[in-house]
Design a protein around this nucleic acid. Sequence first.
RNA 1: GGUCUCGUGGCCGAGUGGCUAGGCAGAGGUCUGCAAAACCUUGUACGGCGGUUCGAAUCCGCCCGAGACCUCCA
Length: 489
Amino acid sequence: MENKLFVHNTLSRKKEEFKPVKPPYVGMYVCGPTVYGDAHLGHARPAVAFDLIYRYLMHLGYKVRYVRNITDVGHLEDDADEGEDKIAKKARIEKLEPMEVVQHYTNRYHQNMDALNVLRPSIEPHASGHIIEQIELVKKIRDKGMAYETNGSLYFDIEKYNQDHRYGILSGRKLEDLMSETRSLEGQDEKKSSFDFAIWKKAQPEHIMRWPSPWSDGFPGWHAECSAMGIKYLGEEFDIHGGGMDLLFPHHEAEIAQSTVAYGKSPVKYWLHNNMVTLEGKKMGKSLGNAIPLYEVFSGEHKLMEKAYSPMTIRFFILMAHYRSTLDFSNEALQAAEKGLKRLMQAMQTLEDLKAGEKSDFNIQELEKNCYEAMNDDFNSPVVISQLFEGVKIINSVHDKKASLTEEDLDLLQKVMRTFTFDILGLQEESKGGQDELIDYLMQTLLDIRQNARKNKDFATSDKIRDELARLNIVIKDSKEGSSWEFGG
RNA sequence: GGUCUCGUGGCCGAGUGGCUAGGCAGAGGUCUGCAAAACCUUGUACGGCGGUUCGAAUCCGCCCGAGACCUCCA
């Protein structure tokens, strides 16, 4: 089967055939979290989206080095906290060492991502561990004359850069437009132009996180880390750079400018951007105050949650939309995802002991083809899912003996369903309720007693068991194979 | 104000110049002591107005509406 993968490149705003710089190797850099708070639904989006991409590239046989950074220095806050590092601010408030805060939220981020079955990247570099590399980058930019120093801070000279390059190539902006909209903000007097950005920033006296440099005790500029670490681990030109659309400008634009000056070329072949999670049509974001932390989704304790939603439900919910579309959150939508996932997983189990027959009533090869075509078309997971549900129908009708599959087709169906559901979409079975041996044993006993009662037509007893358990939110499900139970929704 | 994106059936969400994804909900059915669960079947929607075309929801123009970025943000 030929696998021509097409990806949507933000640079061209078109789908382009994916051709790695140095096959079979693929270098992929994705902007990771700023670890000064808990991950929310919005953070799950790129993590899952690029996990899908990572998994699929590996499935296609590429040797992928996936780098996702941890941002633990350097992001300035606006006006009120002018010049103060987010991490440092949080640290002071909670009376903790900055690196203690970083470690705490990094751990929690990992817990959330593990729950979502997001594979760990190959390398997860910390910005704070690459200050030297960032200083080297700043030096290179300075040596090329593209930076100027003011009071110990260095700024990237956009206007100068734009003489020979195009600042705005990624976001489709024109410098003239940017200039015309310049409404001077306070505290910008160190910069020649408001759109110049800091590549090294002098630390204020109260600033805890600081490092020595040729210019001042301070910290690297907002965009330096990704340029420096991307190049360090993936080279001066690598294949994929990903992140949220909100990072497109100025963050990724600045990265291109920095690397172009420092290394003489644009660093990335394919820029991929995931869209936002929205809530009531509005972007979910920490600074907007409408972000729902993942752990409050998983536990259901957030005020907007009608119930708890499992990590796999969230993962499935995210995959049900294409990564470049906005995804609107609502309880109704999440419950739809929850039920759909349950049906898919149930069918996956049914598939395990399906029996082959004489003839095939379905075209399994076509199903497989459709799945690959969907993934090859810019990772279209919703279409893959629609195909998996076609598979569910096939599985159930074969199971109900309304149709049949030959041995060969059954094997193929199993292979396709497993590959796409588990390996590529990264879905997994979630253990329900009965982790506890004692509970399992008690429940089994109760179910046995009830089964006996039913056999003896003692429906008063059997119904009492069912009703009493229902009060504990335990649902009994009868089927031909026997009864099972689970915690209700 | 500038740049850009989107508007699909009750909800979520793919896609496409003619061959009408999928999930959830709803309806009907099978099963069941009754129920629940499970399974099967079922829905011709594409913001408005013009234009191009044999044919447009899909292309073009205008209008209306929503959103993103332009400041930290996944």
